[in-house]
């Protein structure tokens, strides 16, 4: 990476680092965990989320207010990243944040599929991607799944959608796969090796999580391979093929040869619930992002690290607030926090 590239990223990285310093520090979570809901609410109202809480206070109340405020804040933060970045960074962030378009399209299709009301669907949309709020409102007005898909025919998402034959899960998977493929394409197009590396690790982690779930559910190799996302870093096509054909316990043992094993070694024996394994893999992803963004401080990585960290902050806060509200035992809440 040349000097000029470093300069390109100096502005956005400094800005993102400053934003990251405002995230809730890790050692704060145990303290929040000890608070009661009103205290947590106050804490969130006085933090970075103040503006969003004030804005939505008319519409929602209590924990629902907190949840909507957090998801709005998340969307706005991501939007801001797109707005303040330029050139390559902007391009890559935009591609990365297509996640929200995918999310919105999925929600919309699911809503239409099950006949949910327009208001119900709108409530669950997060306008943080390329489809603007106005686009989404237009889409919501369309009555059928096929109609929504038709209206999306001019967007880049159409190739994933056009094969719709009444099976929603199929196009949801197609959309998600498209999202990964599109980002890899973007990485190759810009020649940004770091972005590619990050992405491929992300794909590995995603594939691992899915393998665990699908193997545990006893799915066949062919069905598994249909859902696996190609382009992983360590888990190549051949590895995945082999892993997918092994029985569950052998599959777990076969993972020992990959570097991700250390992250899940001590929880891999208990397969009654995969939540522990998923949390470990999420944590691994977060740590990995932080680590390589230190190695390459002036690159796309600190930005991706921030995107991940911000998402995890929102998730963590939500786990605590919701967990407290539904009176989940503290150990369970704690177990689900990614810290």
């Amino acid at each position: 990476m040349g000097a000029s590239n470093n300069v390109k990223y100096a502005y956005i990285v400094a800005r993102v680092r400053a934003m990251k310093s405002k995230l809730i520090p890790r050692d704060m979570y145990p303290k929040i965990l000890n608070m009661e809901i009103p205290e947590i609410t106050r804490f969130i109202e006085e933090s970075e989320y103040k503006k969003d809480v004030d804005e939505l206070a008319k519409k929602y109340k209590g924990t629902e207010l907190i949840e909507h405020a957090m998801s709005q804040n998340l969307a706005l933060t991501y939007r801001k990243l797109i707005e303040v970045s330029q050139n390559e960074a902007n391009f890559l962030i935009t591609e990365y944040l297509r996640f929200w378009d995918i999310w919105n399209i999925k929600t919309m299709l699911r809503g239409k599929f099950s006949g949910a009301s327009e208001e119900d669907i709108v409530e669950h949309l997060v306008a943080a991607g390329q489809l603007s709020y106005r686009d989404l409102m237009e889409l919501v007005k369309i009555g059928t799944v096929e109609g929504v898909i038709g209206a999306l025919s001019r967007t880049p998402y159409y190739p994933a959608l056009e094969g719709y034959k009444g099976d929603l899960a199929e196009i949801e998977n197609a959309l998600d796969k498209w999202y990964y493929a599109k980002r890899i394409e973007a990485a190759i197009q810009t020649g940004n090796k770091l972005f590619l590396k990050f992405l491929r690790t992300e794909i590995d982690l995603k594939n691992l999580k899915m393998l665990f779930r699908m193997k545990r559910a006893g799915m066949e190799r062919e069905d598994i391979m249909k859902l696996i996302i190609p382009g992983g870093m360590e888990l190549k096509e051949a590895d995945l093929n082999r892993l997918a054909s092994l029985p569950l316990n052998e599959f777990v043992r076969a993972l020992e040869e990959f570097s991700y094993w250390n992250a899940i070694a001590d929880v891999s024996s208990d397969l009654s619930s995969l939540i522990n394994i998923e949390i470990r893999l999420d944590k691994y992803g977060l740590e990995y992002a932080a680590r390589i963004s230190y190695y390459y401080p002036l690159s796309i990585l600190p930005i991706l690290d921030y995107i991940l960290s911000k998402k995890i902050e929102v998730d963590n806060l939500r786990i605590i607030v919701h967990g407290k509200e539904t009176k989940l035992p503290e150990e369970i809440i704690k177990a689900h926090l990614v810290m």
């Binding site: 100096a10 502005y11 956005i12 400094a14 800005r15 993102v16 400053a18 934003m19 310093s21 303040v84």
Partner: peptide, 18 residues
């Protein structure tokens, strides 16, 4: 200064203390 200035402006945009 080019890079540093850009970075400084970026950081300052988030937090004036910088």
């Amino acid at each position: 200064e080019q890079a540093i200035g850009a970075a400084a402006v970026g950081a300052m945009a988030e937090d004036e203390k910088f």
